[in-house]
Nucleic acid binder design. Structure first.
Lengths: 142, 142
DNA sequence: CAGAAATAGGATATAATTGTCCGATTTAAC
DNA sequence: GTTAAATCGGACAATTATATCCTATTTCTG
C-alpha cells in the first residue's frame, strides 16, 4: 500500500509526536532505533518531511526533530509528502485520465475504497496516534 | 496501490474475459495493444497468471489466452497471484506481527480500509468488469 | 513433412527504490 | 575559540521492479 519510505516516515512522525507532546526533542539516532529503521535512510525521509513542513528539524548539538502541530497534522500530509497522493486519489489501474466521464472498469468499486482510505488519512491526526503509543496499547516495531 | 505488473495483469484479464465470453481466443500481441502495455513484460505477467491457473494459455499457431470461469474468477485472485495478498491483508506500517493483540498505531483505522478493499477484490468478478467494457461504459487505456 | 505463428523461458538491460558512506555545516557547551 | 554532537546533502551501492531480446518449443495449416 505505502512505500517503505512512507512507512518509516509515518512511524518516525508518530514517535516524534509522542516526544514533542512532552516537550522532548528527539535525535535521528533515537528515532531510527525506536522504529527499527536504517539510520541514513531515515535521515533522508526526515529531510523530506522537514522540507514539506511536516516536521521541524533543529541542527547542531542537542539538535533533532520536533512536531509542533500534532493535533492538526494528518496522516494524509505525510503520505502526500513521501508517496504523493496517488494512493488515495489516483486510478486503481493507473490510467491517467480515469474519471466519471471516462472511467476504467474498476472505477466505481475502487472509488469507494479510495474515498475510504482518503477519509481515514485526512481524519487521523498524529496526536491521536501518538497517544496510543503513550498508553501502551500499540507498538512501532516487530 | 497495485504494482504496474498487477495493473497490467488486471487489464489483461478483463480484456481476455471480454473475448472469452464470445468464445474468442486472444493473442499476447492483441492484448498488449489493447491495454497499452509492453509486449514482452505482459508475456511474463500472463505466464505468471497461467501458472496460477488464472488464465489458460494455448501454445502454437492460433494459440493465445482464455479465461474459462470469468463469473467465479475474482480480482483478489489476480492481485494475490501478482502482488501477494499483503495489500489487503498486511499491516499498514509493514509490521510483521501486527494483530489485535499487538497492533500498530494505525491498526484499527487501517483495518477498516483493508477489509473494505478485501471485500471489494473478493466480490468483484472478472465477468462483471468485462461486461462494462462490452457496453462501452468503461475503457482500458489512456 | 515443412513452414509459419504463437507461447515459454532464460539472459540481459534499464529504472526506481532502498540503503550506505562521508564530508560539510550548524550549534550548544565548556 | 575549540570541541563535540547533531543535521544536511551529495555520491555511491544494492536490491527490486520494469522492460527488452533472443532462442526454444509447441501446434496449426497447407
Amino acid at each position: 500500500m505505502f512505500s517503505k519510505a512512507c512507512e518509516y516516515g509515518i512511524k518516525a512522525a508518530i514517535y516524534i509526536t509522542q516526544n514533542s507532546l512532552l516537550n522532548n526533542r528527539v535525535s535521528l539516532k533515537e528515532i531510527a532505533a525506536e522504529i527499527d529503521s536504517p539510520v541514513a535512510f531515515t535521515a533522508k525521509i526526515l529531510q523530506d518531511l522537514a522540507r514539506n513542513q511536516v516536521v521541524t528539524s533543529i541542527k547542531g548539538a542537542r539538535g533533532g526533530f520536533e512536531i509542533h502541530n500534532p493535533g492538526e497534522l494528518k496522516l494524509s500530509q505525510i503520505v502526500k509528502a513521501i508517496d504523493s497522493d496517488d494512493v488515495y486519489k489516483g486510478c486503481g489501474l493507473g490510467l491517467v485520465k480515469c474519471d466519471e466521464l471516462n472511467p476504467c472498469p474498476i472505477h466505481d468499486k475502487f472509488k469507494v475504497v479510495r474515498e475510504n482510505l482518503k477519509e481515514m488519512l485526512e481524519n487521523t491526526s498524529l496526536k491521536e496516534l501518538a497517544l496510543k503509543l503513550d498508553d501502551g496499547t500499540t507498538v512501532l516495531k516487530i
